[in-house]
């Protein structure tokens, strides 16, 4: 039962993880924004470039025609794990308490048993995606170590949280410390891996939509 580990994770560890994550993310976003784009000398066919970009941000949440049938399992698991992850992150009462204490905002949480069930579903969805990755020969060929690493970094916080809640493997305090540490590992990795898509996706989608919008087409 490592109270010392828990204390470290909840203080120094959390502090550094926050610093690295925010520093990395702002650095990368600013860098991308300042990269600029070559000026398009052609005349815009659609003047409302901005809203075209924003529309695309949302439109891309819906799979393009035909794709859903082709990759039902992948799409479904993808949605489930993303949504599940955010529900667990944002609606588990202890998490809300953490947000409240740092940002001063809070909202009602869900009952723990529901969160528990959602965690299981989310974990299963992630396992399905991993199996798909290793079983599908093309995807397997395309996968880099980073893909597996980011998978693990996403999977572990959920798993350790679940295990802590159910008193599995270690005593609660140790497991809770591991849970916090796994989240910190995830936070640190976000700016420097494909996980940064949680921010850059909006930039990329907007840009795509804006270019297409300028040309008067929908993207």
């Amino acid at each position: 039962m490592d109270t010392a580990l828990l204390i470290w994770a909840k203080s120094t560890g959390l502090q550094w993880a926050t610093i690295i994550m925010l520093l990395g993310l702002t650095m990368r976003v600013i860098q991308i924004l300042l990269l600029g784009r070559a000026t398009d000398l052609s005349e815009a066919r659609n003047s409302d470039v901005m809203s075209a970009g924003i529309k695309t941000i949302f439109r891309r949440f819906v799979p393009p025609q035909g794709m859903l049938q082709k990759g039902l399992l992948v799409y479904l698991s993808g949605y489930i794990f993303h949504i599940g992850f955010f529900i667990v992150l944002l609606f588990f009462v202890p998490h809300i308490q953490l947000i409240d204490s740092t940002l001063g905002i809070s909202w009602p949480g869900l009952r723990s048993s529901l969160i528990d069930a959602i965690t299981v579903v989310t974990l299963l969805a992630l396992i399905v995606l991993l199996l798909h990755r290793v079983w599908n020969p093309v995807l397997k060929l395309l996968s880099t170590p980073e893909d597996y690493l980011t998978w693990a970094l996403t999977f572990l916080p959920l798993l350790t949280g679940y295990m802590a809640y159910h008193h599995m493997l270690f005593e609660y305090n140790t497991m809770l410390a591991l849970h916090v540490l796994s989240v910190e590992a995830l936070m640190i990795a976000i700016p420097f891996s494909k996980l940064s898509h949680m921010v850059t996706l909006f930039l990329a989608r907007w840009y795509n939509g804006a270019i297409a919008g300028r040309k008067g087409v929908q993207s």
Binding site: K10, S11, Q15, I19, P94, H95, Q97, S101
Partner: peptide
């Protein structure tokens, strides 16, 4: 609460940004 961080995060967060 148990889940609350033990140190101030706002200061470091602002500095980091």
């Amino acid at each position: 609460a148990v889940s609350e961080p033990l140190t101030d995060l706002r200061g470091p967060a602002v500095t980091a940004v």
